[in-house]
Amino acid sequence: MSAPVGGATVPGARVRRVDVASLVLAGLLVVLGVVLLVDASSITSPLGTTGLGPAVFPRAVAVILLVLGPLLAVSALRGGGDDEPVPAADAGAGPGDGVESAAGPDVLVGDARPAVLRDDPRLRVGVFVLALVAHVLLLGTGGYVVAAAVLFLGVSLAFGATRVLRSAVVGLVLALVIFYAFTIGLGLGLPDLGGR
């Protein structure tokens, strides 16, 4: 997968988007603030507490969250006009932009084969989330080795692995090494095949 193809599949990545994330986060802050207030109201101060009880600090944090939420929403709706521009992290030469370096051609990280999964962020994120969920579910049934191998395979596919079988083998070997290193070497309990 060459750089131009990768670039073409994320059209408008640099175009100023509506700051949906900030709005969602602003909503989350308000919800958290309310949850915190409700939770604090159920906390009872034991008798004989001098000074501040256990509910005062949470209430103060709740108030701060309830102030910050709307402020963030306003900032997002104004297009972040009160903010400085994001410092250009990509000031350096981009990958594959044709700049020939004097140190010889740059070495591409990874291999040149096409990825197994199509380069669609939604598909890739989906596979990633699936791998994480499968890991939790498998821990209790298939044990650590199976769960970790599946996690490795899923995440590697999400990140554009080029060979399914090779990813599966690498994942399995890594999981086995970790399992024995941790259970025997460090004496840390990891669930074995039955999930115990």
Binding site: A3, G7, G96, D106, V107, V109, P121, V125, F159
Partner: peptide, 14 residues
């Protein structure tokens, strides 16, 4: 992942 695929390069050391 959400940003889509991009390739990185390593500059060789001489």
């Amino acid at each position: 992942l959400a940003l889509g695929e991009r390739r990185e390069t390593v500059t060789p050391v001489r």
